[in-house]
């Protein structure tokens, strides 16, 4: 029965966990082999940033980060394909509205700071983008149906901005003979800042749009009856 299966699963998983714990223990007990850490910090000078995590994200392993932006975009496209956004929420009361008026600019400001500080301390495009997204969520919760987002055409350009700038910089470097995402010496700092700024905006917009939960455009703010639904030929 169901409970038997749950029990069986529990036993199996406990065994699996024990095995994994043993494997982890055995691994940690080993003499730590050559890690990437030494190499990463040795090369940190040349990366254009002084925060090692940012260096990994946007220089050593920038390709991963580019694809991660693509993953975020794919999720949003999937959400958009499922239909128009549901209706928003009723307007918030005056007290909340006043609070929102304070919080949202503050979040945006904090996002800007996060972006800037990422170059040398914990922070960066993702944290900044998340703050922007939070600002959008607060706007939507307070009754702003579009969550502060612009109309559909602009929104579409904004969500591809991050991956677009990233890929274009990479492709441009490839075309000019440096190799894909191989920053020329001295230029790395500015190129990374450019990419990070674009990514911040894109991540903020994408997270907000994902929270809005449907296709942007005309259908955002009503009850959802008269919208064009997905029609298969």
């Amino acid at each position: 029965m169901k409970r038997d299966l749950a029990l069986l699963l529990g036993i199996l998983l406990a065994l699996l966990a024990a095995l994994l714990l043993w494997a982890l223990h055995a691994t940690l007990a080993l003499e730590p082999g050559p890690r990437l850490a030494e190499l990463a910090s040795a090369r940190l000078e040349q990366t254009g940033v002084s925060n090692p995590v940012t260096a990994v994200l946007l220089n050593y392993r920038a390709y991963d980060t580019l694809l991660e932006l693509a993953v975020l975009l794919a999720a949003l496209l999937g959400i958009w394909s499922l239909g128009p956004a549901p209706a928003g929420y009723q307007r918030s009361g005056p007290a909340l509205a006043a609070l929102v008026d304070w919080i949202v600019p503050l979040a945006i400001l904090a996002g800007g700071y996060m972006l800037w500080v990422g170059g040398h301390a914990p922070g960066g495009a993702f944290q900044a983008g998340a703050l922007l997204g939070a600002a959008g969520v607060i706007l939507r919760l307070s009754g702003e149906p579009s969550a502060g987002l612009p109309g559909e055409p602009a929104q579409r350009w904004l969500v591809v901005l991050g991956a677009g700038v990233f890929a274009l910089v990479g492709g441009g470097l490839l075309a000019s003979g440096f190799g894909f995402l191989t920053y020329p010496p001295g230029q790395a700092k500015w190129l990374i800042l450019l990419i990070e700024s674009a990514a911040t905006v894109a991540i903020g917009v994408t997270l907000t749009a994902a929270y809005v939960g449907g296709r942007p455009g005309s259908g955002t703010a009503h009850n959802g009856t008269g919208q064009s639904r997905t029609v298969q030929r």
Binding site: K2, L5, A6, L8, L9, L12, L13, L16, L19
Partner: peptide
């Protein structure tokens, strides 16, 4: 899910 999951973990265990 539970049947598939049990089978899957069983296969994982056998593999190990």
């Amino acid at each position: 899910w539970s049947v598939a999951g049990a089978l899957w973990i069983g296969i994982l265990a056998l593999l190990v």
